[in-house]
C-alpha cells in the first residue's frame, strides 16, 4: 500500500466512523431525485423559476420537516422537501394550476394500467 493510498483509506475510515457519514455517497439514491434536481436547475437557468423563490420554499419545508419529527433518512427526507418546494413554487408563481399534477398522475396511472393489461397473459 502506497503512503497516498494509506492516507486516503485513513480519511475514508474516519468519515465512515461517524453515523450517517459516507465518504463516497452517491449523488442521488433514486432516479427521481436526480430528475427533480435537474428540473429545478433547468427552470432556474431558463428564468422560469426565480432561484430565491425556490430556495425560500425549500428552506421552509426543511425547517417544517425537522420541527415535525426526527429525521429517519436524511437523504430521502431532503429530496422529499425538494419535491414539495418545487410543487409549491410552481403553483405559487402560476406555472402549474391547482389539480394539474393530480390529473397528470392519474393519466400516468391509466397509461401504466393499460400497458399492463395488454402485457398480462390471460
Amino acid at each position: 500500500m502506497t503512503p497516498l493510498k494509506a492516507h486516503r483509506d485513513t480519511m475514508s475510515d474516519m468519515a465512515a466512523s461517524i453515523p450517517g457519514v459516507c465518504a463516497d455517497d452517491p449523488l442521488f439514491r433514486a432516479p427521481w431525485q436526480a430528475r427533480i434536481f435537474a428540473l429545478i436547475v433547468a427552470s432556474v437557468k431558463t428564468g422560469h423559476i426565480p432561484r430565491g423563490d425556490f430556495q425560500s420554499r425549500l428552506a421552509l419545508r426543511i425547517t417544517q420537516m425537522e420541527q415535525a419529527a426526527p429525521v429517519g433518512d436524511t437523504e430521502d427526507a431532503y429530496f422529499d422537501c425538494w419535491l414539495a418546494a418545487t410543487e409549491a413554487t410552481l403553483l405559487d408563481i402560476g406555472l402549474i394550476a391547482d389539480g394539474e399534477i393530480a390529473a397528470q398522475i392519474e393519466a400516468i396511472r391509466e397509461t401504466i394500467a393499460h400497458i399492463r393489461a395488454t402485457q398480462t397473459p390471460t
Binding site: 427521481w32 430528475r35 433547468a42 427552470s43 419535491l83 418545487t86 402549474i96 399534477i101 397528470q104
Partner: peptide, 19 residues
Amino acid sequence: AALRVRALEELMIAKGLVD
C-alpha cells in the same frame, strides 16, 4: 415521489418550460 416527479416533468415539458 417517483410518480409525482414524472408527472411534474411531463407537465413542464408539455408547457414548453423545460427541454
